[in-house]
């Protein structure tokens, strides 16, 4: 005789399994559709050539370069700010009310919808500061979007440095600043980098913030200054689906671009996960 408790336990556990399996199946279908349709386009020339024959042939090189610049510039803008803010939160953190406000600000920035970042960039960078539609406007917008991710990762990294390190340094007569720069930051660096890499994935894949601030449909020549408009991988996917008069021929290129973008983002995230895994293994404290 099987008790009701056993049946409900059996059903419950298998329900959880079912949920995992559904998620996994969807993910597999999703990846299969994207990679099977876009994968066959991948070739050296797809990565290194400009679009040709009215966006129906050729490659996506300008979009790769555009995404590269947007990402590099936005991260180099957000990284110093983020790390310094994290130092404030971990080492100084006074007065408490300021910490509280800064935290609310960070959490709110993290939750603001990306389209609102786009509107903000349009108002402030494109129109008020007259940066126009350019790499600069797009990078600044994306940089602010990446800021909370970098702050959180850096803060966690700094906090994971054992207290003894800091106390030992201070006891040896080092100043607060010296302790932070010579002890805390170098120790926390790998973890900060991991967080930064994760934010790279986020920045490279965003479309809505660059819709009105940086992206263009077609250029062939690569950007020569930060004031140029650029093609970008995520916008290119959207543009191929919605603009241009050869819908059926553009679709495979959109899938191909999606594969490149996903490969880029997944590669970068995997890298971050591996780095973190190895750090955790190496650590002796």
């Amino acid at each position: 005789m099987i008790s009701r408790r056993k049946i409900s336990s059996f059903l419950g556990v298998n329900l959880l399994r079912l949920f995992i399996v559904i998620t996994a199946i969807f993910l597999l279908v999703f990846l299969y559709v994207i990679f099977s349709r876009g994968g066959k386009l991948l070739s050296w020339s797809f990565l290194t050539e400009s679009p040709r024959r009215f966006m129906t042939e050729g490659g996506i090189f300008p979009a790769i370069v555009g995404t590269f610049w947007l990402t590099v510039l936005s991260i180099s803008f957000a990284l110093p700010l983020g790390v310094l803010t994290a130092i404030f939160l971990t080492s100084y953190a006074r007065p408490p009310w300021l910490v509280r406000i800064v935290r609310v600000a960070i959490n709110t920035l993290a939750g603001v919808p990306s389209i609102i970042y786009g509107l903000f960039g349009l108002t402030v960078f494109v129109r008020m500061l007259h940066f126009d539609v350019s790499i600069l406007s797009g990078s600044l917008t994306l940089g602010i979007l990446a800021l909370p991710v970098i702050i959180n990762a850096s803060e966690e990294a700094l906090r994971s440095v054992p207290r003894d390190f800091r106390e030992a340094s201070l006891a040896l007569g080092a100043t607060e600043r010296q302790t932070i720069i010579k002890i805390l930051l170098p120790t926390a660096l790998p973890n900060i980098l991991t967080g930064t890499i994760i934010s790279i994935g986020r920045v490279a894949g965003e479309t809505a913030p660059i819709l009105f601030t940086a992206a263009t449909f077609y250029t062939r020549v690569l950007p020569s200054s930060v004031m140029d408009e650029v093609m970008a991988l995520p916008y290119h996917i959207y543009a191929l689906l919605t603009e241009g008069s050869h819908g059926a021929k553009q679709l495979p290129i959109a899938y191909g671009t999606a594969v490149v973008l996903m490969a880029l983002v997944l590669l970068v995230s995997t890298l971050a996960i591996i780095i973190r895994f190895r750090i955790r293994k190496k650590r002796k404290w």
Partner: peptide, 14 residues
């Protein structure tokens, strides 16, 4: 975690 990093425009394409 990887699932979280898939760009939304690719979901849109799908």
């Amino acid at each position: 975690e990887l699932l979280a990093s898939i760009p939304s425009v690719v979901y849109g394409l799908f």
